Amino acid sequence: MTFIALLAPTARAMGWRSGLLTALAGVVIVGIPALSSVELQSDDLASMLRVIAVTGALSVGFLLHDPASAISSVSPLSRLDRQLARVFWISAAALPWWALVLLLAKSSAAPGAEQALPLGGLTGEAVAIFSVALAMAAGAQRFGFENHMGLLVALTLLLLTGGSFLLAENSAVLVPPSDPRFEDMRVWWYLLSVAAALAFLILSRERAPRRAVERWTRQAGARGSA
């Protein structure tokens, strides 16, 4: 089976309920001010978009969970290929959802606030948040917490982002767009995205079989003694 052929059965096997719930929650959050004709400033819109990004990322662990992973080990495709197929569908669903969220956010912006709203920078933050969630899910799966990875990733993400929001006034991580440090922090978010993506790729690879590791160790020891 090729990677392309894996996409359709992967989409059918994914638990989309959690993703739909978090996506709906995000649309509701951004839709309330849009429907009530409330006009928000750029800093308020940025905070709202950050909350929505975290809300959407809460479902990543559930969507990445593969209930058939125990029997999928005999598949000709690696675990990394199977995970990438799920990431493909997560990305395909997240992109139009985020575009809709941005559109609704712009509709509730106060005069002049839309121009001051850095959509590119906030999108970069959302990508970083989703990437971190993917890396945590891959780590949970690799270290034997796959049966609880969805809940574990969601709780960990809530703790991390909740602490960041509480410390936002004294921290340079979540700064408002009006803060001069905002542009400098964009580089930090991009680096975080790259680091999380690399962590996901590494953690999604199967571990080498124990016998193969022992054989390699013995051979390395024999070469060293020779």
Rank of each mutant, 00 (worst) to 15 (best):
A5H: 11
L6N: 12
A8Y: 09
A11T: 12
R12G: 07
A13Y: 14
W16T: 08
G19Y: 04
G26S: 02
G26I: 01
G26E: 04
I29D: 11
V30I: 09
I32H: 02
I32P: 03
P33A: 10
A34M: 04
S36G: 14
S37N: 15
V38F: 03
V38E: 08
V38L: 05
Q41I: 11
D44P: 14
A46Q: 12
A46F: 13
A46I: 14
S47D: 07
M48F: 00
M48N: 09
L49I: 03
L49T: 05
V51P: 03
T55C: 14
A57Y: 02
A57Q: 01
L58E: 04
S59C: 05
V60Y: 13
V60F: 12
V60L: 14
V60I: 12
G61S: 15
F62A: 06
L64H: 06
A68M: 08
S69A: 15
S69N: 11
A70W: 15
S72Y: 01
L77T: 01
S78K: 02
R79N: 04
L80V: 06
L80A: 09
W89K: 05
I90W: 01
A92G: 00
A92N: 01
A94Q: 09
W97H: 10
W98Y: 10
A99D: 05
L100D: 11
V101W: 02
L104C: 04
K106C: 06
S107H: 07
S107T: 02
A110Y: 05
P111Q: 10
G112W: 07
G112L: 09
Q115C: 00
A116P: 03
G120N: 08
G121C: 06
L122V: 00
I129G: 09
A135F: 08
A137F: 05
A137R: 04
G139R: 09
Q141I: 12
Q141A: 14
R142E: 12
L151K: 10
L151N: 10
L152A: 15
V153I: 04
A154P: 13
L155T: 00
T156S: 09
T156Y: 00
L158P: 03
L159V: 10
L159Y: 05
S164H: 02
F165E: 00
L167M: 11
E169R: 11
N170R: 13
N170Y: 15
V173Y: 07
L174I: 02
V175N: 06
P177Y: 03
D179C: 06
P180A: 02
R181A: 11
F182P: 00
E183W: 12
M185C: 09
W188E: 12
W188T: 14
W188N: 14
W188R: 13
W189Q: 05
W189V: 03
L191G: 13
L192V: 15
A197C: 06
A197S: 07
L198Q: 08
L198I: 11
L201Y: 08
L203Q: 08
S204H: 01
R205P: 04
R205H: 06
E206T: 15
R207F: 13
R210Y: 06
R210P: 00
A212F: 10
V213R: 12
W216P: 13
R218D: 13
A220M: 08
G221S: 15
A226L: 13
